[in-house]
Design a protein around this nucleic acid. Structure first.
Lengths: 132, 132
DNA sequence: CTCAACCTTTACGTTAACGTAAAGGTTATG
DNA sequence: CATAACCTTTACGTTAACGTAAAGGTTGAG
């Protein structure tokens, strides 16, 4: 039996392989305060929650957020049942993020439409070339 | 009468104001080969087409593309009715961009869902706070 | 017990996308 | 005709997000 299997932790290179990033990047996210694995000695060990966190970070990156913005978003998720005023402030931030994301979807849809048009024009011109 | 109104060109600061970017950025995009205004003397003059181009650049930025990627995309639009082999290559690139954009939409939708959840949890907790 | 294959920290290097002077030319207006 | 409000180029500075050594600790296999 494997003692590792019981707690099911992952090493940094496990995560690096799984998500196709460098270990340097993962450590960088930790320096930045975005992810906090436990340690066995000095070695980092990542839980399932840590994995989810990394996914969240990478998803944020894919949609074009900076690490600072990703941190802001992550912080939103951990709002400490604060004061109503604080809550209001966070809700405003959430609304801002939301409108930003909705704008992005519009942008992407526009680009997809144009790409589809382009694709059609290209294939039709390819056909006309083959036709002659 | 205004001689400018006839041709309807815009100055660099016109565009800067309209799109809320700095003139430095616009010049940077030009250095990068993304936009090419005409010149009256040394002064840059931007046509409607140039404006559209700038919009395209900024939209690309909003969805998280680098200037290099934006250039690639723009180059796709100006395919020179090339060889079939070249066309095939471009179609592959287009397909790549497309899948990337579709992935982004999924990412954004996930984030929106989580943000909505968060919003609900926050408002309900705010209510329960107000209730007691 | 000695490799190989991991892990660690420290720290300087690199690239992209501008920011920010500095120094100077042009043009309308009082 | 001078001053403001633009425009220009040149060029060095800055920040983010890592890349890339360098130097060393740990651990399982042969």
């Amino acid at each position: 039996m494997n003692s590792k299997a019981a707690s099911s932790y992952f090493t940094i290179s496990d995560l690096a392989k799984e998500f196709n990033v460098t270990t340097r990047s993962i450590r960088h996210y930790e320096e930045y305060g975005l992810i906090t694995p436990v340690r066995k000695g000095t070695t980092r060990l990542y839980s399932a929650k840590n994995k989810t966190r990394l996914q969240l970070i990478l998803r944020g990156k894919r949609v074009g957020f900076s690490l600072a913005e990703i941190k802001e978003i992550i912080d939103l998720y951990q709002f400490p049942q604060g004061e109503a005023k604080q809550t209001e402030f966070l809700l405003a931030k959430i609304a801002l993020r939301k409108s930003q994301l909705l704008q992005q979807i519009q942008d992407i849809k526009s680009m997809l439409n144009e790409i589809d048009d382009l694709e059609k024009r290209m294939t039709s011109s390819a056909i006309s070339k083959a036709d002659k």
